[in-house]
Simulated assay, not measured.
Amino acid sequence: MSPDASSPSSVWPVLHYDDTGTALRFLVDVLGFVEVVAAPDEHGGIGHAELRWPGGGALVFGSTRHTDSVHGRMRAGTSAVYVVADDVDAVHQRVREAGGEILEPPHDTEFGSGARAYAFTVRDPEGNLWTFGTYRGVS
């Protein structure tokens, strides 16, 4: 059985953003994540957000203003995330329509494992790289 947006994830990438409101809108409205939790902080931003990918998996993010934990040492825009997408072209189209910065348009490629995939890469508003592709890992 394949995972879906309601399945719990055992891997949670953690990102930090300077502008958490803009990040949330980009991740949900443009990339297609599903908002599960977006708890406000004392600064009017988002202190903690949890998002799910419709094909399975999860992401957590918060504000760079919060420096009281080991994750508080993270800078915005210094991460890269790979997301398996069944419809790479649909995600690409949403990014194009939103005026997102596409670094590599959809193309056939070969990853380090030698596996073929169809993928594209976008930079989010704070510099993190997001690659969406059909490669599901070595089976």
Rank of each mutant, 00 (worst) to 15 (best):
P13D: 04
R52K: 15
G127P: 06
T67F: 08
R94L: 00
T20L: 04
P125F: 04
V36K: 12
Q93F: 00
E101H: 10
R96C: 08
Y135M: 02
R94G: 02
G32M: 03
F26D: 01
I46P: 04
L31V: 13
G56D: 13
E110N: 00
Y17T: 02
S113R: 02
G32S: 06
E35L: 10
R136W: 03
S9R: 01
S10E: 05
I102V: 15
S2L: 11
W130A: 01
D41S: 11
V88K: 05
R75W: 09
G47E: 04
G44D: 04
R136H: 11
Y82H: 14
A90F: 01
R94S: 09
G127R: 03
V88R: 01
R25L: 12
V95M: 01
E104W: 12
R94I: 00
V60E: 12
A117S: 15
N128G: 11
V95H: 02
V60I: 15
W12F: 14
G55H: 09
L27K: 02
H71S: 14
A49W: 00
S139P: 15
D41E: 12
S9A: 15
A80M: 14
V36S: 08
P8I: 10
I102L: 11
R75S: 15
T20F: 05
V95D: 03
R65K: 15
I46M: 05
G56Q: 13
G72N: 10
V60L: 15
H48A: 05
A39M: 15
R94F: 01
T109A: 11
V28M: 07
G77C: 07
Y17Q: 04
L15R: 00
N128P: 11
D41C: 10
S9F: 02
H43C: 11
M1I: 06
P13E: 05
S7H: 12
G127T: 06
A76W: 10
G55S: 15
I102Q: 00
V95R: 01
Y17M: 00
A49Q: 02
L31G: 01
H43V: 07
E101D: 10
D124N: 06
P125I: 05
R94N: 05
V88L: 07
R65P: 13
T20R: 09
D4G: 12
S10R: 07
E110P: 02
P8M: 00
S139W: 12
D108G: 09
R52S: 13
D87E: 13
G72P: 15
D89M: 08
E50N: 06
G100I: 08
R65C: 01
P54N: 06
A85V: 12
T109C: 09
H16N: 14
D18G: 12
F33P: 00
A39I: 11
S6I: 12
G72Y: 07
H92R: 03
V34D: 13
D19P: 14
L103G: 14
Y82Q: 09
A85T: 07
S6P: 10
